[in-house]
Amino acid sequence: MSFSPCPDPKIGDIAAIDAIETLIIPRTSDIGGLEVRRALPSAKRRLVGPFIFFDRMGPAILRPTDALDVRPHPHIGLSTVTYLFDGNIRHRDSLGTEMVIKPGDVNLMTAGRGIVHSERSPEELRTEPLPISGLQTWLALPDHLEEIDPAFANTGVSELPMLREQGMEARIVMGRFHGAGSPVKQHAETLYVDIRLDPGSHIQLPGNIAEERAIYTLDGSVEVAGQSFAADRLLVFRPGDEIIVRAPQGAHFMLFGGAALPSKRYIWWNFVSSSHERIEQAKEEWRTGRFDIVPGDEEEFIPLPENRPMEQ
Rank of each mutant, 00 (worst) to 15 (best):
L191E: 12
F152K: 15
L141K: 08
L34V: 08
N307P: 01
T288A: 06
G220I: 13
E277V: 08
A251F: 05
R287K: 14
A153R: 15
V100Y: 04
L141Q: 11
D30Q: 02
R113S: 14
E280R: 09
Q204C: 10
G87K: 06
D149R: 12
R213E: 08
N208C: 07
P103A: 13
R46M: 12
V245Q: 14
M162Y: 07
F51L: 12
A180K: 05
R308S: 11
I279D: 13
G167D: 02
R278K: 10
L95K: 13
R176K: 11
D149T: 10
V157M: 00
S121F: 09
P103R: 14
G200K: 03
E242M: 12
M174C: 14
I101N: 01
I11M: 05
R92V: 03
R287L: 12
R38M: 04
M254E: 04
V224H: 13
A180H: 05
V184R: 07
G114I: 12
H117N: 08
M168P: 10
G179R: 04
R233M: 08
F229L: 14
L95Q: 03
D292P: 11
A231Q: 04
L160V: 05
P5F: 02
T65H: 09
K44A: 11
M174V: 03
R46V: 03
M1F: 05
V81R: 02
I11N: 10
R120C: 03
I215T: 07
Y83Q: 04
T28H: 03
E284P: 08
L40K: 03
F85D: 11
P161S: 09
K44F: 00
R92Y: 02
N208S: 14
L84E: 06
H144N: 06
A214E: 10
Q249N: 13
G226H: 05
R92N: 01
A188N: 15
G240S: 04
V48K: 04
V236K: 06
Y83T: 03
H73K: 13
F177K: 06
G296T: 06
D232A: 15
A19E: 14
G226I: 03
I209Y: 00
G296M: 01
M57K: 00
C6V: 01
V173A: 09
I101G: 01
A67D: 15
D93I: 05
Q281G: 07
T97D: 15
S228H: 10
K102V: 10
P161V: 14
A282M: 10
G114A: 11
S133G: 13
V173N: 04
G220K: 07
P103Y: 03
I25A: 10
G175N: 13
G104S: 10
L197C: 08
E146M: 05
G87S: 09
D93S: 08
I148S: 05
I195W: 00
A67I: 01
R27M: 04
H75Q: 06
D86W: 01
R213C: 09
E35G: 06
H75I: 09
L218I: 12
F3V: 06
R196I: 07
